[in-house]
């Protein structure tokens, strides 16, 4: 490519500028939200204070008072963390078995798991409400959300772990067998150390998906187990009155996740395309 690169020195500069512009443009709404979160509600809607204003932390300090932020955040953390743990506990053995002891049906099982992910959630909205409210009495509980979040992420988690486990060379496992390692030893001494990175990023991605989920968390909760998605959805139209405080609570809800997301960009591709793009 050296030939092309040398003839286009001008285009290289303009590409750089253009690339930066695109990057900044895409980030701008997030930047704008963060900037607004440091304005008082009154200043936030005044054009003359677009960029020059006295920053204030009040919106963050008053998050509890204005929105009861920490209660919703705690619900988000509880449901996302436990759903992630539960998904991994169920997903790891399953992916392990499929990767190292594949049978003729393994492929079909995997495909079927994926197909459950493609079922539109809305189609089973009422049965879910009916079952959990009238029948099981678990509507608007942490337990329900943890269960549902686990189930909707289980196919992706199994799939991701499967692709990671499959990348571990068979011969290494066989070498372990020759060296006299037990089944449990194989998992502890060889498999977990080798797949550690994959398991960690799978967990991270699963956590992000749980945190951002916005159908079941909105439809299956009212107050007790309501998460940040529900909180934001409930304050959808402040009509300009509360731009500052709404920005603060939004930024607090998405900030940590964006940072976590930066760490698992690569895994995202694998996780969302089910290994079909490499």
């Amino acid at each position: 490519m050296a030939i092309v690169a040398e003839t286009n020195r001008f285009s290289k500069t303009s590409r750089t500028v253009l690339a930066w512009l695109v990057g900044l443009l895409f980030f701008f709404p997030i930047f704008w939200m963060i900037l607004t979160s440091f304005k008082t509600d009154a200043v936030a809607v005044k054009p003359e204070f677009l960029f020059s204003f006295t920053p204030t932390l009040d919106n963050y300090i008053n998050m509890t008072e204005n929105y009861d932020y920490w209660r919703f955040a705690a619900n988000s953390v509880i449901t996302s963390v436990f759903a992630t743990i539960f998904t991994l506990v169920v997903g790891i053995p399953s992916a392990y078995a499929m990767a190292f002891n594949p049978s003729r049906r393994t492929k079909d099982v995997l495909m079927w798991m994926l197909s459950t992910k493609m079922l539109p959630a809305a189609a089973v909205l009422y049965p879910m409400t009916f079952l959990t409210k009238n029948f099981l009495g678990i509507f608007d509980t942490h337990f329900l959300l943890i269960l549902v979040l686990s189930l909707i992420n289980l196919p992706i988690v199994v799939w991701m772990l499967f692709t990671y486990f499959k990348e571990i060379p068979r011969e290494i496992i066989e070498a372990g067998k020759m060296d006299g390692v037990s089944t449990w030893g194989e998992v502890r001494e060889i498999l977990i150390p080798l797949a550690w990175g994959g398991i960690a990023s799978t967990a991270l991605l699963c956590f992000i998906f749980c945190w951002n989920e916005a159908y079941w968390t909105v439809r299956l909760t009212t107050t007790e187990a309501a998460t940040l998605s529900k909180l934001i959805e409930g304050n959808r139209a402040p009509e300009g009155l509360f731009f500052g405080r709404l920005s603060a609570v939004s930024a607090a809800a998405v900030g940590p996740i964006i940072v976590l997301g930066w760490f698992c960009q690569k895994q995202l591709v694998q996780g969302l395309t089910f290994g079909a793009v490499k």
Partner: peptide
Amino acid sequence: LISPFFVMPAV
């Protein structure tokens, strides 16, 4: 560039 993808849909 990747950041928007991690913003929760409600926000």
